[in-house]
Design a protein around this nucleic acid. Structure first.
Length: 573
DNA sequence: CAATGCGGGAGGA
DNA sequence: TCCTCCCGCATTG
């Protein structure tokens, strides 16, 4: 069999590239495997750097015969990057499933013995808007072509001048995202676009998997030239958690209302048809993008998700959701720096942070307050606030501290991001924190825009040139997004620190930290810091995430909108 | 429904 | 000829 495979491998499967530094006659494969296995089990290994260029590699994925019975197996790398090779045990579940943190799709190499996968890149906001921390949206492209198309084609209304539309149209526009729930940028509601991976001589990075005896040989070719998307495990865990959350809420609400007629399950007071929510799978992709937190909430000791049956007020739901996330720690979060251990701000904080007003002052919202800003957060806030007729969005600070004091960064940031996801003034894409495409003057975005399911233009994308519409000194709202860490402050506008325009980003996100937002995206934060701001942030001990008030309700009465929304939904859909 | 794997095929170097 | 990606289909969870 191997002989046959050998011939076939040469004919069909040999994809060795010229840039690959294949070691012709190195040491034993066992030595290499041992070397890789001895790599520290930290983030660097996960990044796939456990196989240095000079490693004594004795095998290639296309070799006729693979090293027999490796004495040592590598730890599974979820984020392999670069021209690396690993040997996994055939009992390694993740290796068996050919999993990867990168969004890899199957690619035919006409070799049945070697599975080849190519990277799909990462989905980002078409407008490249900046998130509150200055980072950008980084969604995981759906592997399935159809799903990916759906993922990036937005039914959402975008930003429409509400006041210019008839009320019925307004309702329709508001309802559509919930009905069809296609994905748009949760920040600016613009379309999502795919940054293709071109890390392998202009082609996507490819991963090869080969099962040989008791070992699974893995070889990666290329260096990812794009940020990491959200990992698969993260996405699945979050979705599952949210589905159960929704199911729980639905059950609780159903019991509470005790209304036999489903057709009358909503009224102008804000009750809505929960069934419609649950029946819209896409909605679950929106829900996690949002934050159920509110500054007026405190964090209860969250009951077990599976046994939770309490009434569905927002606070309970929030806690409920939190517990769900806590149950699904992200195994793939990449955090090259030391673990963060700051305490989240509690109600006792006298000041929310260096720039408190920026979070609270709804008047600082740009002049587009007449625009419908239907980000997912609002959906959620609106939806769940409908359970609570008197929810106060302008309430107190959040008391996360008791519940999260011992949480890892991931958990904490999730909750922090819950609030950060809220619509803050600086969150607007028009504010300085965004980065702008160089050719924005009339020219299309340089990033590749998906026009069909699989047809992707590979020539257009360049890394957007980062510009500050205002300097850091000017952009007060900017710095307000910084947050303190042990190492110092994490910039809210990491792109400002990045290499100049035109310089490709580092293949491996060294110097960056991936931070998960409880949505379908990640945030990459640089580990670089603004020292002065770091000092300021640390002195007051406040975590700006905690005080990033959603600023909701400043534009439109969300409860009203929800009431109208679901009324319309139930009556006409 | 999405992920996954397989295989035919087209296109470029 | 080789290598790549595109695309459709079937299977699986």
């Amino acid at each position: 069999m191997r002989c046959a495979l050998a011939a076939k491998s040469q004919d069909l499967g040999d994809t060795r590239s010229s840039e690959e530094q294949r070691q012709p006659e190195p040491g034993s494969w066992a030595a290499r495997a041992t070397e890789a296995s001895q790599m520290p089990a930290d983030a660097s290994q996960d990044a796939g750097h456990g196989c240095p260029q000079g490693a004594t590699l004795s095998w290639d994925i296309n070799d006729p015969r693979m090293p027999p019975k490796p004495a040592h197996f590598d730890h599974f790398r979820e984020w392999p990057d670069g021209y690396v090779r690993f040997i996994y045990s055939s009992t390694e579940k993740k290796a068996q499933r050919h999993l990867s943190g990168w969004a890899m799709r199957n690619t035919n190499n006409h070799n049945g013995h070697i599975l080849k996968k190519s990277c799909l890149g990462v989905v980002v906001c078409a407008r490249a808007c900046a998130l509150p921390d200055g980072s950008r949206l980084q969604l995981r492209p759906a592997i399935c072509d159809k799903a990916r198309l759906k993922q990036q084609s937005a039914w959402g209304p975008g930003r429409w001048p509400v006041t210019a539309l008839p009320s019925l149209t307004r309702l329709l526009l508001i309802s559509l995202p919930l009905v069809f729930a296609e994905k748009v940028c949760p920040n600016c509601q613009s379309a999502l676009e795919l940054i293709p991976c071109r890390g392998h001589s202009g082609y996507p990075v490819t991963n090869f998997w080969r099962l040989d005896g008791s070992a699974i040989f893995f070889q990666a070719k290329g260096v990812h030239d794009h940020p990491r998307p959200e990992s698969k495990s993260e996405t699945e865990a979050r979705r599952n958690a949210l589905k159960r959350q929704m199911a729980s809420i639905y059950q609780a609400q159903k019991k509470r209302t005790q209304e036999p007629e489903v057709g009358e399950n909503q009224d102008s007071s804000g009750h809505f048809n929960n069934t419609s929510l649950l029946e819209s799978p896409q909605l679950f992709d929106l829900l996690p993008d949002t934050s159920f937190s509110s500054p007026g909430q405190t964090c209860p000791s969250f009951p077990n998700l599976d046994v939770y049956t309490a009434p569905c007020d927002l606070a309970s739901f929030q806690g409920h959701l939190t517990s769900a996330f806590q149950k699904y720690p992200n195994p793939s979060i990449y955090w090259p720096g030391p673990p963060y251990s700051y305490d989240l701000a509690g109600p006792e904080y006298p000041s929310p942070g260096p720039y408190p007003t920026l979070y609270k002052d709804s008047t600082s919202i740009p002049s587009d307050t007449d625009w419908v800003d239907l980000n997912a957060l609002q959906y959620n806030i609106s939806s769940y606030s409908s359970y609570e007729s008197s929810f106060d969005f302008t309430g107190k600070q959040c008391g996360w501290k008791p519940g999260f004091a011992k949480l890892g960064l991931e958990e904490r940031t999730e909750h922090g991001q819950l609030q950060a996801m809220a619509r803050c003034p600086y969150y607007n894409a028009e504010l300085p924190c965004r980065y702008l495409v160089t050719s924005s003057a009339g020219g299309p975005a340089l990033q590749t825009v998906i026009t069909t399911t699989t047809k992707v233009s590979y020539q257009a994308y360049q890394r957007p040139t980062l510009k500050h519409s205002g300097s850091m000194q000017e952009g007060g709202s900017f710095s307000s997004c910084s947050f303190a860490s042990e190492d110092g402050l994490v910039s809210i506008c990491p792109e400002a620190l990045d290499a100049p325009s035109g310089i490709p980003r580092a293949a491996s996100p060294v110097g960056r930290a991936s931070l998960k937002i409880p949505g379908d995206f990640w945030v990459n934060r640089p580990t670089a810091a603004f020292p002065q701001e770091a000092a300021a942030s640390r002195t007051d001990g406040a975590d700006p995430w905690d005080v990033c008030l959603p600023g909701l309700g400043s534009e439109i009465s969300f409860s009203d909108r929800v009431g109208l929304l679901f009324s319309y939904d139930s009556e006409d859909f």
